[in-house]
Amino acid sequence: MKVIKDEGLPTRVECASSLKHVIDALYVLNGKWRLPLILSLMHASKRFNEIQHEVEGISSKVLAKELKDLELNGFTKRIVYPTTPVTIMYESTEYSHTLKNVLAELSAWGEQHRERIKESMRKQS
Rank of each mutant, 00 (worst) to 15 (best):
S59V: 02
N73E: 07
L63Y: 02
V55C: 14
K65P: 00
K65N: 15
E71S: 06
R116I: 11
E105V: 13
V13C: 03
K118D: 01
R12D: 13
M121P: 06
G110H: 08
H21D: 02
R78G: 03
T98A: 14
W33P: 05
Y81R: 15
I38K: 03
E7W: 03
G74R: 14
R114L: 11
R114G: 08
K118W: 04
E94V: 01
I51D: 04
Q112W: 06
V80K: 05
K123T: 04
M89A: 10
K68Y: 08
L70V: 07
T11N: 04
E54F: 05
H97A: 06
G74A: 05
D69Q: 15
I88E: 14
M121C: 04
M1A: 03
M42I: 09
R114A: 12
H113A: 11
Q124L: 12
A44C: 08
S107H: 10
R47D: 07
R122C: 15
L70Y: 06
K5Q: 03
E105H: 01
F48K: 07
V102Y: 08
R122L: 13
Q52F: 00
L29W: 03
S92K: 01
Y81A: 03
R122S: 15
K20R: 10
E14M: 04
T83L: 10
K100N: 02
H53D: 15
L41T: 07
T93M: 01
V62P: 00
V13M: 07
H21A: 12
E66K: 10
K68L: 12
P85Y: 05
Q124W: 08
C15Q: 09
N73Y: 01
V80D: 09
S60L: 11
L37I: 08
R122F: 13
L67Q: 08
S59E: 06
T93A: 07
S17C: 13
V102Q: 09
L37W: 01
V62C: 06
Q52A: 05
S45Q: 06
E7Y: 11
A25G: 11
G8E: 05
L26T: 03
K32N: 04
K77I: 07
I23M: 12
P36C: 00
I51Q: 02
S96P: 01
V62N: 05
H113W: 14
L39F: 02
K100R: 06
R47K: 11
S96M: 09
I79N: 09
L9Q: 10
L37G: 01
L72E: 06
L35W: 04
Y27P: 10
R122I: 12
E94M: 03
V62E: 11
L72T: 00
Y81G: 00
S60I: 14
G110F: 09
